[in-house]
Design a protein around this nucleic acid. Structure first.
Lengths: 343, 343
DNA sequence: CTGTTAGCGCCTTCAA
DNA sequence: TTGAAGGCGCTAACAG
């Protein structure tokens, strides 16, 4: 910075101000400084300014599971975009194993290393939540409600009801719900089955089964259980698109067609859902990420300037919506369904 | 740090050393310091140490396209894991639009903000490459060869030949290759078609077509062109799994079965390929990411301590391999193919 | 093995 | 509108 100052014939202070486009610098001086900086292709060291200002300019995101997983990748995309617009960096804390989890909460590497933390779809224990409070830094929870903390989430119950209602409206009266055993630390969409049950109860339909898979990839097992029912359900709601697609593929393999033989409805709106024509309850990941990031940015701002504290609601709920493609249709009956089928 | 020092009854210097587990501190002192640090739940500020040491402890990754895209997400996963083991952070520079691209190369935000840069599957112009050289920081290219720079990549030509040979070995003599128009700045696997052609030439097979899609999602268009051939090709090699899956789905929709009517072979080994039984030429993303990160770490080390310069080869090539599932089989003939089919 | 002394590069008073 | 001085928290010589 000293060299820029020399070249522009001003002091470092002025360079600092000019580069941050402070209005305490005359337009002319500012131009001169910028020119000098360009010629020297000088860039301010974020590290040094962080040290001086006490603000890191960085928001941490705690992610459970692989970054390549659909939800994680998508959410990172929208968080990234929002932070970037705010001139902030994204710092990822990925947690994939129990060991990593323990280590994260033991050492809290985010301490003094980010201005705020977004906890993305990661089911925390009470102890872990408290531990995070100790960080005494702004916290935003994503798809997880925490007493007194800022959060952004979808309403899983409402979403599942929405989907179930669709199946009901199509005329299905013998249904099933499939979910994957939760993998421990990753956020579990377990409230969805509650919505499924509630909607059926409200409609007076009691003929349904709840099936489970060992993993999100285990469509076979779901189909196995489906076939074991006294009478084959005509519609199946699945906890996530990923599992739903595995179920669809398994269904096709045993010669069952969707939706002619069984309707399949997913949840999420996974990138590949379009490809295979999976109808689904869409979760607006882009909105989720954007809102969470915006909240984090706000909270950081509020921490600096307490006057603008409550700009934004602290707990926002983002609506889900139904996306109809080709995997749901009327149950087979006197008049055969005519929706396009994959086989 | 001062408070830890007070509590442990030593100087800040000693605290600093103890916390970095320097062997210049007695075991006893170190224990005392660690105890004090724990009690105060103190964490070293990376920002401050960066400023003092001149090393950022951070590796930048330039990524073209969405973080949620399969390749990007997967590569980030393996890079992350390797960096984390080395105690380094990951800083993402995502570039999705031309505007972002220009801005990135104009401002070079990575300058003074990362110790090294990994350029992931992002086709750079010569001017852009030079611009990066100006950064004078260690550079590692991923799936892109740059004169004199470190790189990690697969051999696209060899991979495509491998896949083509498989189709040939199955008995196919009328083939097609499908690719998506490159999206401009994202890395293009255009060398793959070269491998396809070369292998066919070597086998003396001249009966083939090259089809193109407008996007990676546009399976319909590929199928349209496929059906327009004088005689339906019995096997189709596709540039990427994502496009291949869209093609498969389109094929099924028009009533063509894989592999009974046409074999489909992808390239990548996308996470969803298993689900839909897509045979493919696997690209080992985990190895790619790990090697690239390791190379970056080495180069940073070498920059500090020039003695250990050439530990690791500067241009590594990672082998692809064939993964056979259910989308490829013998062409229909006197004896019908019996591989499982999705319909 | 431990402490003292100087910065790292920037930003924020305070003065001019 | 500009500059000078001091300090952010840590680490790297240099002593001892």
């Amino acid at each position: 910075m000293q060299d820029v100052a020399d070249r522009a014939g001003v002091s470092v202070t002025t360079v600092s101000r000019a580069l941050r486009s402070s209005d305490l610098v005359s337009a002319e001086t500012r131009a001169r400084v910028h020119a000098a900086a360009d010629e020297l292709s000088f860039a301010v060291s974020r590290t040094a300014s962080s040290l001086a200002t006490g603000r890191l300019g960085r928001i941490g995101v705690v992610i459970g599971g692989a970054l390549g997983a659909w939800f994680n990748g998508s959410i990172l995309d929208s968080i990234y975009a929002t932070l970037r617009d705010a001139g902030l960096e994204l710092l990822i804390f990925r947690i994939t194993t129990d060991a990593e989890r323990e280590r994260f909460f033991a050492t809290l590497p985010a301490r003094r290393n980010a201005d705020a933390l977004i906890v993305a779809s990661f089911a925390l224990t009470d102890a872990e939540q408290e531990r995070l409070q100790d960080l005494s830094m702004p916290l935003v929870y994503l798809n997880q409600q925490v007493e007194g903390a800022a959060s952004v989430s979808i309403d899983d119950v409402a979403g599942a009801r929405l989907g179930t209602r669709h199946l009901l409206n199509l005329g299905h009266r013998r249904l099933a719900y499939a979910h994957a055993d939760q993998e421990g630390f990753v956020y579990s969409a377990s409230r969805r089955v509650t919505g499924f049950r509630a909607e059926l109860a409200a409609a007076g339909v009691a003929d349904y089964a709840v099936l489970s898979a060992r993993s999100v990839t285990d469509g076979e097992h779901v189909v196995g259980q489906l076939l074991a029912q006294p009478a084959l359900p005509t519609a199946l709601m699945v906890q996530s698109d990923e599992l739903a697609m595995n179920v669809m593929a398994a269904l096709w393999r045993v010669g069952l067609r969707t939706p002619a033989d069984v309707s399949v409805l997913g949840f999420d709106d996974h990138a590949m859902a379009v490809t295979f024509g999976l109808s689904t309850v869409a979760q607006p990941v882009d909105v989720l990420g954007r809102e969470a990031a915006a909240l984090a940015v706000d909270l950081v701002g509020a921490a600096v300037d307490p006057r603008r504290g409550a700009d934004r609601p602290r707990a926002v709920t983002v609506p889900t919506r139904l996306v109809l493609r080709h995997s749901t249709g009327r149950p087979a009956g006197p008049v055969a369904a005519e929706a396009p089928r994959p086989s």
